[in-house]
Structure formats: C-alpha cells, structure tokens
C-alpha cells in the first residue's frame, strides 16, 4: 500500500471531508429520530475509506459516497431486523437522495443557523444544547430539568422554529447582499 499521505489519498480525504455535511444529513434524513444515525454515518465513512481503491477519480465522488451511505442504511435496518413502519417510501428516499446530492447551500444554511444560535438568550441556548447532550427521552429529560414534558416539548419546538426563521432571514439578506 502507498503512504497514507500520498497525493491521491490526500485528495480523497479532502473529497470525503467536503461531503461530510451532506452525507450525514442524508443518513439522518433516512433515519429520522434514530439515535444510531451517527454510528451509521461513521460506519459509512469507514466503508468509504475501505473502498477508496474502487473510486474512479474522474467520477462524481458525492454520488459514489451516497450509494455507499444508502447501502449502509439498508444494512443497518436489516441488522435491526425491524419492521418498516418508520421508513419512508422508496420514491421519497430517492427524492431525498437526489435533492441533498444536488444542493450545495447546506454549509451556508448551517452557518446561518450557527450565528442565529448565538443570538438566542443564553438560557434558551443552554436548554436546546443540553437537550442534545442527553440521550434521555423527552419525558425523562423533562423530569431532570424539572418541567412538564408537554411544556418542554412546546418550548423546544418554539425555539427551533425561531432559529429556523432567523436562518431564513439571514439567508435572504445574504442573497440580496
């Protein structure tokens, strides 16, 4: 095997790095609310790396990586041997794949979100972020922070919506700037 830092591998790493956001977004979109989506993303990265010799540098890296991601998602579902209740239809999954694959403003959108997050009141930001630092279910988490599950659900929902509205305002400003 060649040195890991050889030029073609450095190129490969750069491609893989550049598509981390759409790749994880894609995997999360196919596994909504599944705590293991992150593990599947990591497994996908490992598989992409393992198959790097099969990648033809002249072709579309993203499409190639997405095909592997899709396979890893199917494989994960199969391992879970779960029913297909919370799986989107094949048509929708294909639409999602092609949309995410062919959109390149996700970085920008996430950057806008990051800025908006800084604008939130500190305790609201704290609440949102802490929620993601916990693997507890919403009701378990509500108990920990001493609030009712219903009330907490509403607050979190309102905060997320506010953040997304803020993001859209920013994006439209950037667009017109």
């Amino acid at each position: 095997m060649s040195e890991p830092t050889s030029q073609s591998e450095a190129q490969f790493v750069a491609e893989l790095t550049a598509c981390q956001l759409p790749l994880t977004l894609y995997i999360r979109s196919l596994l909504p609310g599944d705590g293991a989506a992150g593990d599947v993303a990591q497994q996908t990265n490992a598989k992409i790396w393992e198959k790097r010799d099969e990648f033809d540098p002249g072709t579309n890296f993203k499409a190639w990586a997405f095909a592997i991601a899709r396979y890893e998602v199917l494989n994960y579902r199969k391992q879970q041997a779960r029913d297909a209740r919370f799986v989107f239809s094949q048509e929708l999954e294909q639409t999602i794949a092609s949309e995410i694959e062919n959109t390149d403003d996700f970085e920008e959108r996430q950057e806008a979100l990051r800025l908006c997050l800084q604008e939130l009141r500190p305790r609201d930001r704290e609440l949102l972020v802490s929620r993601y630092a916990s693997s507890a279910t919403l009701s378990e988490y509500a108990e920990v922070v001493g609030r009712s599950a219903g009330g907490l659900k509403v607050t979190l929902h309102r905060l997320r919506t506010a953040l997304l509205e803020c993001m859209k305002r920013r994006l439209s400003k950037w667009g017109t700037a």
Binding site: L21, R28, S29, L128, Y132, S134, V145
Partner: peptide, 26 residues
C-alpha cells in the same frame, strides 16, 4: 432538511460542551 441541519448543529455544540461540563443525565 433544515430541522435536521439544526439537530446536527446542536448535537455538535452539545458535544463540544460535553468536554467542558457534565451533561444532563449522561
């Protein structure tokens, strides 16, 4: 997609924070 982007961002923020202080019910 936007809501998932937000989820990812928050998860990343939470992760950074986790290094600084104990998270709730880790």
């Amino acid at each position: 997609y936007d809501r998932i982007l937000l989820t990812q961002l928050l998860a990343a923020e939470a992760d950074e924070k986790a290094g600084e202080q104990p998270a709730v019910t880790p």
